[in-house]
Design a protein around this nucleic acid. Structure first.
Lengths: 157, 157
DNA sequence: TATTGTTATACTCTATAACTATA
DNA sequence: TATAGTTATAGAGTATAACAATA
């Protein structure tokens, strides 16, 4: 349990972090949004997955996932194959062109962040990432929909 | 200096944190946006200030600050007085009605966060806040506009 | 009946640029 | 000429609700 002032400060920092996110997105290629970059990264690291799983990892609604994926598919970065086990589903995977873009993105991100975070140690960054992850988990457990709707981020019916 | 994978993970967590921010905003009264809540908090803690200063603390453009403040002023939460020292400026302060709202907001925030973060220690939360602050500062120093435009967040001319 | 993914629509937050009134 | 604030417009990101196809 923490003090009340801390809670308010946490809410404030959470909002102000938007500026960092926006700044980082300026390092990306023109037609590649931050959402696209993260999708490609998730597909690279976790391999083939379904729409619903991707939306869950991105913590956004299924409708938004659909739009982002469509955008990436139209650019040829993501491939959508029908799932042989469930004809309603689609299996997403990275295309070679998507891999190329991801490499470009990684390079740019690394360059931008290395410039800003030159005085951060490996441990500092790791610590921050760990705490952010934990915050998301703590918060996710509280979302009412998560309690009975399983793992999806879908709009409740 | 940190490893490349860390940078990408940092970018990902930064984006995914949006869900936490949105979840938190559901705890607020209907006509009070997160931006409004934070503005009131800043005015409470830092006292009377000008538009430009507020925009700087919120890390948003002057145009956006103007809109948020107008919204709050129309609801009677913020008072805008002409600055006697500079007729172009306006001095912002919390009204009694704004203080009341802020109390309500604090209570709700505390309630919501206490429920989610019951297993976080005071130190955990403090640590996270500190790292987020530092991230903002490290990143702020890199924004090209910040290098020559002083402290403002204003759109460069 | 329930679930997967899609689409149409609307909402929030933001930046850019052009403007005014002061300095 | 430069600065403080305002407004109009546009863009990115998101959620909600209604829908089709499948389970």
């Amino acid at each position: 349990m923490a003090a009340q002032e801390q809670y308010e400060e946490l809410a404030r920092q959470l909002s102000a972090l938007g500026a960092v996110k926006r700044g980082l997105s300026r390092a990306l290629p023109h037609d590649c949004s931050p959402a696209t970059a993260i999708m490609l990264n998730l597909l690279k690291r976790n391999g083939e997955m379904r729409m619903s799983r991707l939306g869950e990892l991105l913590a956004i609604d299924a409708s938004v996932t659909s739009r982002h994926v469509t955008h990436a598919a139209e650019h040829g970065w993501i491939d959508r194959q029908p799932d042989p086990l469930d004809k309603r589903s689609r299996l997403l995977s990275l295309t070679p062109s998507g891999e190329l873009l991801l490499e470009e993105v990684s390079e740019r991100y690394t360059h931008a962040l290395a410039a800003c975070l030159h005085d951060w140690s490996d441990d500092d960054v790791g610590h921050l990432i760990g705490l952010m992850k934990r915050l998301r988990e703590s918060f996710g457990d509280c979302r009412p929909r998560a309690l009975h709707a399983g793992t999806t981020t879908r709009t409740p019916v």
